[in-house]
Simulated scan of single mutants.
Amino acid sequence: MSSTSRSKEIDGQNTDVLLQYYADRILVVVTQFGKVGSLIQASIPSTAPLLVPSDAPDADEDQLPQPPPSIQLTPLMGSAQSDHMHTLNSLYASQIATLVWLAEETLRPSRRNVVVGLALRRTDSETIPALIDVEKRTFVQIMGVVREALASQEDSSA
């Protein structure tokens, strides 16, 4: 069992990412409060294809891979306080699981379930369009921290 963690300040909030590897699944915790928060399990059939971001010359190097349509999200503990936050949590869990599966693809052919713990600052972007930009920026930065943690795990297992 191995683990990796990363911290970064994102929009004035200290954000921690922890990856914990188990034999049957991978736990990824993203927190701005120092706690696990809501837990969502992501699973996918081992035969489902993963779409790698385009290798086209004009493609953005930070482009995120598209989560597969066959992904299944199962809430394990905790619940979102609004429909907006439920959607946002599902987006985070899907994207994080996809990044994990792509990172593992070369190391381990079978896909373990990914359990994502989310404890993020709440916003009311449903009513204020400017906050939607903050959520997008936060999302992209958090995915960058997840990628850093995954890359450091790959380096340590090589």
Results as ranks from 00 to 15, higher is better:
1 M>V: 11
4 T>M: 15
4 T>G: 09
5 S>R: 07
5 S>K: 10
6 R>P: 02
7 S>P: 00
7 S>F: 07
12 G>A: 04
14 N>Y: 00
14 N>C: 02
15 T>S: 05
17 V>W: 01
18 L>F: 04
19 L>K: 07
19 L>Q: 12
20 Q>T: 14
22 Y>A: 08
24 D>S: 13
25 R>W: 07
28 V>R: 02
28 V>M: 01
31 T>F: 02
31 T>S: 09
34 G>T: 09
34 G>A: 05
34 G>E: 00
36 V>E: 06
37 G>A: 04
38 S>I: 10
40 I>M: 06
42 A>G: 01
44 I>T: 00
45 P>S: 12
46 S>F: 11
47 T>N: 09
49 P>E: 11
52 V>P: 03
54 S>V: 08
57 P>E: 03
57 P>Y: 00
57 P>T: 08
58 D>Y: 10
58 D>F: 14
60 D>M: 02
62 D>S: 11
62 D>R: 13
63 Q>W: 02
63 Q>G: 03
65 P>Y: 08
68 P>F: 09
71 I>D: 06
72 Q>Y: 10
74 T>V: 10
74 T>I: 09
75 P>G: 05
77 M>K: 12
81 Q>N: 15
82 S>N: 10
83 D>F: 07
84 H>M: 13
84 H>W: 12
84 H>C: 08
84 H>T: 14
84 H>R: 12
85 M>I: 15
85 M>D: 15
85 M>V: 12
87 T>L: 10
88 L>A: 06
89 N>W: 07
89 N>C: 01
90 S>P: 00
92 Y>C: 10
94 S>Y: 01
94 S>C: 07
96 I>W: 01
99 L>N: 13
101 W>S: 06
102 L>F: 10
103 A>F: 03
104 E>T: 10
107 L>T: 13
110 S>E: 15
114 V>N: 05
116 V>Q: 00
119 A>F: 00
119 A>T: 02
123 T>G: 00
125 S>L: 01
126 E>P: 01
129 P>S: 07
130 A>Q: 07
133 D>Y: 08
133 D>F: 13
136 K>V: 08
138 T>E: 12
138 T>C: 10
141 Q>V: 03
142 I>W: 06
145 V>M: 01
147 R>G: 11
147 R>D: 10
151 A>D: 14
153 Q>V: 05
154 E>T: 14
154 E>P: 00
155 D>K: 15
